[in-house]
């Protein structure tokens, strides 16, 4: 099961290599070049998707685990270091953790690792909330911004 995305990536990379060989042989001046370029572009997208699947397979469990840890830590901090102002950071972190728990890897090319970054930032924010109170929310916000940039950009 775990080997399957790797095998698919290898297959896709092989197919891309073949497409590129044809593209290189035709050369940019050839009349077939635009069609070959479009075909190769599809192969490139397929390789990117296969790589994302590999990343997703690798990061699903760690992301979920971090999200679950963040939720638990937020609960502990909320109870142990209760402060109304800190609740902002905790609520934001729990919301991020919920989103990552539901879908730990996302769909776009660079999203699995972007979600890792976002949930790590949320965990860090929760752990620092006793020190920084509500200001720790900024760390989570930065993580979310990073995630959005990787997903949309």
């Amino acid at each position: 099961m775990a080997a399957e995305p790797f095998a698919r990536l290898a297959d896709r990379q092989h197919a891309l290599r073949t497409a590129l060989r044809a593209l290189r042989a035709a050369g940019p001046g050839s009349p077939d070049f635009p069609a070959l370029l479009a075909a190769t572009d599809k192969e490139v997208e397929a390789v990117l998707q296969a790589r994302r699947d590999v990343e997703a397979a690798r990061l699903t469990v760690p992301n979920r685990a971090t999200a679950a840890g963040t939720s638990v830590a937020a609960l502990v901090v909320a109870v142990g270091w209760f402060d109304a102002w800190s609740l902002l950071s905790l609520v934001l972190a729990v919301a991020t953790a919920a989103a990552v728990l539901v879908d730990p890897t996302g769909r776009t090319h660079w999203e699995p690792r972007a979600r890792t970054a976002a949930i790590s930032a949320a965990l860090l924010a929760v752990l620092l909330t006793p020190l920084l109170n509500g200001w720790a929310a900024l760390i989570t916000a930065a993580g979310i911004a990073w995630w959005a940039r990787r997903t949309l950009g």
Binding site: F6, L9, Q13, H14, L16, R17, L20, L23, R24, P28, G29, F33, L37, T40, V44, V47, L48, R51, V54, E55, R58
Partner: peptide, 21 residues
């Protein structure tokens, strides 16, 4: 354009050997 096309083909070529991480 031709120069950019060859550079792009080289870049795509690199994609065929890069490790996933």
């Amino acid at each position: 354009y031709d120069r950019a096309a060859l550079a792009a083909i080289d870049a795509a070529d690199a994609l065929t050997t890069l490790p996933a991480h």
